[in-house]
């Protein structure tokens, strides 16, 4: 497999899944592991595990696959390929800015923002189900919430202290 066809593959899969990292895994497995056989299943799973322990966007693990196959240039170009579609946003934004004074567009937008709130809570809920389990996770979650919402601490400070507390509790229990 050439670098160009690999980048085109990443570009297409990312576009088809709307940049959803986990949704790309079965596609990558079918193409790179099963069909082209350039990547081992262990490498694919390792790349995906990296995504879970790394901050930032969940689809940047394609950089790991790019690195496995083509070194640094593969990692860099794969990342570029998942960033470029972001520019599709510009024409949408321009259209919205041009039409926002229209009453119908204003009402549509209000419906859209309200539904967005629902969607943000839905995503929070689904992360919550995956994240909260054993008692320590609940303690860390609630302590963070208390420090940043009620005590108005700096977010990073609240996050760091609660994280340390979690590690400490895990070591002690």
């Amino acid at each position: 497999m050439s670098l160009l066809s690999f980048i085109l593959l990443i570009f297409t899969f990312n576009l088809l899944t709307f940049g959803n990292g986990p949704a790309m895994i079965p596609m990558l497995q079918a193409d790179l592991v099963d069909h082209a056989q350039v990547l081992s299943i262990e490498q694919l799973l390792y790349a995906f595990a990296i995504a879970r322990v790394t901050p930032g966007q969940a689809n940047v693990y394609v950089a790991s696959i790019g690195y496995f196959l083509f070194g640094l240039s593969g990692a860099f170009l794969a990342t570029l390929a998942i960033q470029l579609p972001g520019y599709i946003m510009l024409p949408f934004m321009r259209t919205y800015e041009r039409m926002r004074s229209n009453a119908w567009v204003g009402r549509f937008t209000r419906g859209l923002t309200v539904a967005s709130v629902g969607l943000i809570f839905a995503a929070t809920f689904s992360i919550g189900i995956k994240t909260l389990g054993e008692p320590v996770t609940w303690i860390v979650f609630i302590v963070t919430l208390l420090t940043i919402v009620l005590l108005k601490w700096n977010q990073m400070l609240g996050l760091l202290l609660a994280s340390l507390l979690g590690i400490l509790l895990k070591l002690l229990l």
Binding site: N14, L15, L16, F18, G19, N20, Q57, N59, I82, Q83, P85, G86, I88, M89, F92, M93, Y96, T109, L112, T113, A115, S116, V117, L119, I120
Partner: peptide, 19 residues
Amino acid sequence: LTYYGISRIVPSGSMTALA
């Protein structure tokens, strides 16, 4: 919220589109 809503509709990673 409006930009977030639009970013979920375009075929791109939402945070990429928002950036």
